[in-house]
Design a protein around this nucleic acid. Structure first.
Lengths: 235, 235
DNA sequence: CGGATCGTTGACAGGTATCAATGCTGGTGG
DNA sequence: CCACCAGCATTGATACCTGTCAACGATCCG
């Protein structure tokens, strides 16, 4: 049994060391010695659209690195409504609050097919007590989350609904080689921008008619030039 | 000259070890040995209302701990408008982005008389290379910022203006012994909640008329019971 | 094919921004 | 000490935007 665990751990770390997005992930600058400290297996998970990584009240055991796909962090409010707090993409961490806090702060749900690495919290704690490499990555990642949240707050919660939707589309298309991206449902767009589904639908439809947005199923492309006309209110 | 600097450093650390809010601040669980590593002076600054701690483009040299008062983090947008991204209060850190990034992400401005500790970034870096105590505090603080930003996003950027203002007032009054607090200018309230100054003014005036809010100059107290009627839209 | 879910569109009411005018207050200098 | 000024706060009128309620069309999947 122990042998199996060790083997799994080694598989895990082997995979980590060969990881194609290694420079993006939490373990970016771990040394070989550090990898020997990983005693629990790191699992690869493939998630279908709608799968739940964790829920707010779940017991805390894992942190997740997004390898590909898109994950939404959802917070339910006392009155029953909810809001999408943030989107996570390749290289982002989900559930880091597990390292300091006592419970997950959101529900994490895959918005499309998504693959993640599931990292036991105990691994992180063990590494942290032996090396400061990981702490550096953790603080760096936290800062990234924070600065992106700030930009989010500035771009996606002010101005008219039209400009907020335009900014969201630009954000989604951003850092995509061919600029094609997954267009969320109208309800999700509403929950992201604090507008109603109907308003989201009207605006998306308007963008399509204006030729600023083209969709095939849930895959979308934007015409950035045309879309910019909607970024600021009025024109 | 060197002697003076060392003396100053010792003054600084002496003060830190006796700091009345030490359990709240970054250096909470440093040991005596750690304090010996601080070679640059930590200064106490008293800031008047409107003073600027740092600006977005400033060179990065310091991190600040708020000892008392209120600081706003302001982000200017390309189109010239701006938004208050976050408020900082006792025990909060300003400018942590200086530790990983290359520039400050906001302007930090005192909203009332404020006292802060000015900590050279080099001190932090030095401590980090010798001990992981500080990293633990840093990650903990980052998480706090993040989770508060999330709540902020949920409470202060959705719903009617009336409920947003009500939530802001409750947030400001929160964790105050006598629940009396500094009431920001209508313009600042607008920048905090992404509403216009006129709307902010109308709602504040309405709350006053309803007896849910009392002010004397810029000092305010709320009647939480009455204010709750405004939290949800409609009633 | 049919039902369920999601997206689109319309009509209307209420909320908010905008433009504009007036009242209020704190600070300054005579 | 007082008068005045500049900035802030309040209030009104109006147009526009968005939420709400409702109906209908499109798409997905069994």
């Amino acid at each position: 049994m122990k042998a199996i665990e060790i083997t799994q751990a080694w598989n895990g770390t082997e995979k980590c060391q060969q990881c194609p997005i290694r420079d993006l992930v939490l373990f970016a600058d771990l040394k070989e010695d550090d990898f020997r400290l990983l005693h629990l297996p790191i699992n690869d998970l493939e998630l279908d659209k709608g799968s739940i990584l964790y829920e707010q009240k779940d017991e805390i055991n894992f942190v997740y690195t997004i390898r590909s796909g898109l994950v939404k962090l959802v917070r339910y409010l006392p009155n029953g409504s909810y809001r999408i707090i943030r989107l996570l993409r390749q290289g982002d961490l989900a559930g880091i609050e597990a390292l300091n806090g006592s419970a997950y702060l959101h529900h994490a749900i895959a918005m499309q097919s998504t693959s993640v690495c599931q990292i036991p919290v105990k691994n992180i704690e063990q590494l942290n007590s032996h090396s400061s490499h990981l702490y550096r990555q953790l603080t760096a990642r936290w800062q990234k989350v924070q600065s992106e949240a700030d930009i989010w707050l500035a771009d996606l919660t002010m101005g008219s609904s039209r400009s907020r939707v335009a900014n969201l589309l630009i954000y989604l298309a951003d850092s995509r080689p061919d600029e094609s991206f997954y267009l969320p449902s109208r309800e999700d767009i509403g929950a992201l921008l604090a507008i109603t589904t109907e308003t989201a639908s009207r605006i998306i439809a308007e963008f399509k008619r204006a030729g600023a947005l083209n969709t095939l199923r849930h895959t979308a492309k934007i015409d950035k030039i045309k879309l910019r006309h909607f970024q600021q209110k009025g024109d």
